[in-house]
């Protein structure tokens, strides 16, 4: 080995070499991860563009001529134009409600650590663990008696309630990291609770709001179990049940199902790309103490 050469240079050469190998390893790992994650979507794409009688390998693009039939079937028979609109309404309302109600609830829970409040926190968090089927029939009966089945408001309220625990958890964790000084200053200036909450607390929640918006809207947009029961008429059905209706006990239409799934992915993907940079910052919410 090079004994006369300055030790300094050996080290740096070695560092450079290992870092080059490190870079190669890092990008190989990333490439494998990306390919793994994208493969199912690729298969859905080839399926969606093939006619139902085309039974060539899923890896192959539709060689014998692609078709848009599946998309038009999904759109027309599945009433996707309604499903997209219904999904959008329920998602926007539920997400807005989750943010507002969740942030409001989190504020006292983060700032006042009394026994009662710790109990309330636990109670709300505990709701994360309720199996949906345990509440389905009583809930459905209640909504039927109130005449609220097949209304946007009932599904929105139910889904908001299901999403609240996680939102409250994330908001509470994030608020605890905020310095008290601003709120104290506001109080000295004579600001009331509402003013302090709206002017001081809410604006500083921006990153965590982005996180809650992305997680909540994705969950609501894709929610299947409750949605398929509460909104089951074609006019008001949301996206996941509409797409799933192509998997039937008689005659699956996998091409149309894949097409419906891809159409349904688009809006949420756009929303995600739009909010992504805030999201990464806000995901820290639960991560700081």
């Amino acid at each position: 080995m090079a004994t006369t050469i300055a030790p300094q240079r050996t080290t740096s050469a070695r560092v450079r070499r290992t870092s080059r190998i490190g870079q190669l390893g890092r990008w190989t790992f990333i490439a494998i991860a990306v390919i793994t994650q994208v493969t199912p979507f690729y298969l859905a794409l080839t399926t969606a563009f093939k006619p139902i009688t085309d039974t060539t390998s899923l890896w192959l693009p539709p060689l014998s001529g692609g078709t848009l039939d599946n998309f038009s079937t999904a759109w027309n028979s599945g009433h996707l134009e309604w499903a997209l609109e219904n999904g959008l309404i329920v998602t926007v309302v539920s997400t807005a409600l989750t943010c507002i109600v969740g942030a409001m609830a989190a504020y006292p829970l983060a700032r006042r650590s009394t026994k009662l409040n710790r109990f309330v926190s636990l109670l709300i968090l505990g709701m994360l663990m309720v199996p949906p089927l345990s509440i389905l029939v009583p809930l459905y009966t209640m909504l039927a008696q109130l005449g609220l089945l097949n209304t946007y408001i009932s599904l929105s309220l139910v889904l908001t309630t299901i999403q609240l625990p996680l939102a409250v958890f994330l908001f509470t964790q994030f608020m605890r990291t905020l310095p008290l000084s601003l709120e104290e200053a506001a109080a000295i200036d004579g600001a009331g609770l509402t003013t302090t909450f709206l002017r001081i607390v809410l604006p500083s929640l921006k990153p965590v709001i982005a996180t809650v918006v992305i997680l909540t809207s994705t969950n609501v947009w894709n929610e299947f179990a409750m949605s398929s029961y509460i909104l089951n008429q074609p006019e008001v059905r949301t996206l996941a049940p509409a797409a799933a209706s192509f998997f039937g006990s008689q005659g699956n239409n996998i091409g149309a199902a894949a097409a419906a799934a891809l159409i349904g992915l688009l809006p949420i993907l756009i929303a995600y790309l739009f909010l992504q940079k805030y999201f990464v910052k806000g995901a820290l919410a639960g991560a700081e103490k």
Partner: peptide, 8 residues
């Protein structure tokens, strides 16, 4: 019956 079935 699903929305794309003949009986529907």
């Amino acid at each position: 019956g699903g929305p794309d079935t003949p009986q529907y």
